[in-house]
Amino acid sequence: MTCERTQEKFADYLTGDLDEKGRSEVQKHLLDCSACREDLENLTVVWAKLGVLPEEQPGSAVRSRFYAMLEDYKAAQPVGSKSRWTDWFTFRRPAFAASFSAFLLLLGVGAGWFLTGARPGGEKYASLSREVQDMRQQVALSLLSKPSASDRIQGVSYSAEVKNPNDTTLAALFKAVDSDPNPNVRLAALDALYLFRDRPGVRETLVKSLSVQSYPLVQVALIDFLVEVRETRAIEALKKLIDAGELTPEVKKRAEQGLKQITV
């Protein structure tokens, strides 16, 4: 095999994509050709060196921009059924005016479309909307499990955009409030949960959080939340918290105030 033919195989040789026959041909040539041998040695070194370049993650803004763009694109799309209405009234109206039978036909078709055609369209839209919501939840959950606090905050803000989050997403938010190592993530998760304050279980779970919460700022935010929604089940928890005597003076003051506000 010539040097040229051998060198043509180097790319596949480096990736391991060369078959047995090709590999033995290359190796046979290398035994007799020091120039190709040196060439391949250098290429192997530089090929390995390229492996030290780390894979980087794009900033979280890339994801936000993409989803905003996708939402805008969807919003700008004409709704199929709308144009059908327009078509009917723009182009068929002369026929409607010209003859009564055409009018009846038009009316029949129009009514038929309205009663049957519009419903699947509506269902289709609802299904698309659900899929986008599901996707948002998946992204939110994935971000909430990242090591970077800014990613987790981004995950919280994604979950806040979900109209009706499922129990898994809510559980991830509760977990963030109770045990995220970063207090900013805890506060962001609490803010997100305020949007879902009327969902069954949200208030009860946050009452329980009062006893496990360790960050004073988050304790105050939790008390604010429970006072805001007038959660009477928090009364007992607040009393216990005050009696335990482990609160900072500021948190204790807010807890006492909150207790009065709820019981009024």
Binding site: E55, E56, Q57, P58, V62, R63, F66, Y67, L70, Y73, K74, Q77, L128, E131, V132, M135, V139
Partner: peptide
């Protein structure tokens, strides 16, 4: 027309394209 499916492709390819 199911443009929301692009979100899945975005999640699969954004890091690869970025790099």
């Amino acid at each position: 027309g199911r443009v929301e499916k692009l979100a899945v492709l975005f999640e699969r390819y954004q890091t690869m394209l970025y790099n």
